[in-house]
Structure formats: C-alpha cells, structure tokens
Amino acid sequence: MNPVEIQHVSKSFGDAVALADVTAAVPRHSIVGLIGRNGSGKSTLLRHMTGLLLPDAGECVTLGLPAAKLGPAELARIGVMDQHAHFVEWMTGTQLMRYVSSFYTTWDRALERDLTELLEVDASARVGAMSPGHVQRLALVLASCHHPELLLLDEPLSDLDPIARQTVLRLLLDRFSRDDLTIVISSHMLRDIEPVVNRIVCLHEGRLVADADSDALRERFAEWIVTSRAGSLPSAFDDPFVVSAQGDAHRARLLVRDVAATDAARFEAAHDAAIEARPLTLEQIFPVLTQQASGQGRPRDAAEAGGVAR
C-alpha cells in the first residue's frame, strides 16, 4: 500500500488552475523529490496530502484513507513541515515543543534533544524572534520527533545556509535508514536533493510532467557534443529526439531525450559526424522538463536553448 496515492486530482482557486488532473504515487520507504517552478502547484499538492485542501475532482488517498477523512490516529503518523512554517510566535522554542509534543503519544524526547543539538536550534528564543532559517529548523524538529511514517517537507532547505542544508539532508537520510519512513521533499535546491531522492515528481503549471525513478528519468536525457567531419551541420535538427540545439556548422551541442538504440548511429551516418554523449544533472534537465510541458518544444532561437550546461 502506497503511503500516498494521488488520483486525478484537480484544484482551482477561482479562475486560477492550481492542479489539473494529477495522478501520482509515493511508494513506501522512498524519498520523493517534488519539483517544479514557482506556482506549479507543489505546495497545493502537499496540502492535499494532509487533507487541508480538498480537490475539486479526483481523490488523494493517504495512509490508506481518503485525505478528507484523516483522523487523529493517522495524523499522528504524519509529520508536516510547511514552507512558511509559522506558529504561535509568543512561545519560545521549548514551550512550543512541549505544546506540540502533548498531541503525540510517540514523541521521543531523546530524539528531540539530539535534533535540536544537531540542527543548532536555540530553543530558548521566542519563535517570533527567530530568523526564518531558525524557524525552518525548528519546524523540522517538530515534524520529526514523533517518529512519523510519512514526512512531508515543503521547501525545507530554502532558508538554510549551505552547512545547515547538508546537516538537514544527512539527518533525513539517517532517519530514513532507521525508521520505516517515506519522505516527500518539495524543493528548489535541485543540486542538494538530487543525491538524496530516489523518485522525482515534477509539476508544471499544475500538470504532472514526470513521475519516475530519478535515475531512470535522468537517463532519458543526454547532452550530445556533435562534431562534423565535413563541417556541414544544419542549424536546426528535425529529429524527434532533439530537444534543443546550439552551435555552428562544425560543432553543435544538442540536448536529446528518449534516444532509441539505433538513433545515434543513424544520426552519425546521416550528418557524417561523431557524437560524444554526456549525462545531465537534474538541474540541467529541469528546464527541459518544464519547457516541454508548456509545449514550447524547440525554441526559435537556438542560442536561447533551454539550458544545457551553463
């Protein structure tokens, strides 16, 4: 049973479409990276998972129950960290932790101590006086100390300095390997989460663009450095697997996707060129994923090609 199953969820706020027929699943004991541009619906999707928002169409099933019907027992197994995690700001960190811990029977005080120390949370400060990064780390402590089965993190790294980011990711991996935990991270820090996630769910303008194993997704894309022996490369390539092209008649840099086994050889023969294929990082294929979804396909101006190895 998948901890979260999103089935044809659509949601609009007035005229603005936030989610359009999104179907995805979060497998058990996996770390899912939820990526997308600002306003693509990531936070909205995360809020559907806890039942805070109800879909206009479709259903979200969390821990076996429709999210709308999540009861206290199920909520106690979920840990949530909101992007703008704000709490009652007059409480100090310690008071807040005591207050929140009173709602969970599985609260682990030892873990709380360890996490506050590891994340350098000064629990004696008032929440309202904490900097955004500090609040974020406190929010992570509050979300994790009751040993949840499902951890939903909305931009947990956005306000943290580079060292704190690494600490948080190490911490998540540690908890992941100790508990039977499923983590969903929504983040812009693609470089940071790439080694940590094993599945990617990508949204663009409310629609699902990708829901796949992260290695498999990346292996669909490649960068080709094409060198022509005759100096006769065309300025545009109409092969279906070419996403973007950049360069002149002698050398070109192509971004390709879903290349079949024979396509490369045929391409080399057709253009009398040699191909050097390189893999791409998540950050490099991200613009392609989102560009494709909005139907831009190949840009007019090759120089504006959607981002290969900046």
């Binding site: 996996s30 770390i31 690494q166 990711l169 190490r170 991996l173 540690d174 992941f176 390997s177 080694p195 940590v196 996630v197 094993n198």
Partner: peptide
C-alpha cells in the same frame, strides 16, 4: 551516510 546519498 558517508556519501550523503539515498540508501536505495
């Protein structure tokens, strides 16, 4: 843990 990558 050492490399900071997913155990999977």
């Amino acid at each position: 843990q050492e490399l900071g990558i997913n155990p999977m």
